[in-house]
Design a binder for these strands. Sequence first.
DNA 1: GTACGAGTTTGGACTTTATCCAAGTTTCGC
DNA 2: GCGAAACTTGGATAAAGTCCAAACTCGTAC
Lengths: 137, 137
Amino acid sequence: MYPTLLERLKSRGYRLTAQRRVVAEVLTGENMHLTADEVLERAEAILPEVSRATVYSTLQQFSDLGEVRELQLDGRSKRYDPNVQPAHHHLVCEGCGQVFDVAHGETAPVLGEHDRHGMSISTAEIVYRGCCVDCQQ
Amino acid sequence: MYPTLLERLKSRGYRLTAQRRVVAEVLTGENMHLTADEVLERAEAILPEVSRATVYSTLQQFSDLGEVRELQLDGRSKRYDPNVQPAHHHLVCEGCGQVFDVAHGETAPVLGEHDRHGMSISTAEIVYRGCCVDCQQ
DNA sequence: GTACGAGTTTGGACTTTATCCAAGTTTCGC
DNA sequence: GCGAAACTTGGATAAAGTCCAAACTCGTAC
């Protein structure tokens, strides 16, 4: 069995605290794209005394470790995606803000020399925007 | 000659004020991707009494009119791009935050039925991230 | 050209999202 | 268990953006 997030944290010298367990727990799932505030809200439901600062710093750590992907999709708050598969893109409803993973999408086209402006490219993410079933009414 | 932004504003019933002229002026250019604060700063250099609220509301109007594109690239402030050609993407340096237009890039792959989650897709934007020439040192 | 009203602008207060920090608490190797 | 380093906390602070009532101005109509 592949090591869990908590095991990976431990093996890198991070301590396993109740707060980290809770943040890891509320983040996991399919098509989860919670904002920091939503994570805090759900974490408080499990561990009432958890603080905002801890949730933010924990999300930052998980992100630095590559355990979650930080998404900036709506010009407001960041969202945290536990799915870190490199070639997965996102689908955003402009009506309600809901986010779906594009699990099987193709990768973005590779840039030609002329378009690269001399840069070395490390990632290419696609954001599809549109209107979800509920918002099409 | 195609009507300018100011002429298009006028034809839609908007008034041509000094503030709108200045905001339009500082936005224009190749590879311009200013934040609202940068727009304010440059606008003040031309018209010192311009206010923050006006810059924000003007940028919002230009964006609603399709005259500029609002970009959310770095998890901090929005950027405003006077290039509204639909199929152009962006190249962001993770070191310094600099943004380049990808003028001739291909369009993003079309999503299959299964990946659409029932949504109707209206736009697809690609963000390439990497390291620019200056930051590669 | 002047008056007028609707559209604009202004500054300041306010909101939201996120970060910082010093003090207190907890984890884990010994 | 003990202690040091790591972690968490609440509150202050910062950054980005929005709201609002009062003042101002553009452009039409006279």
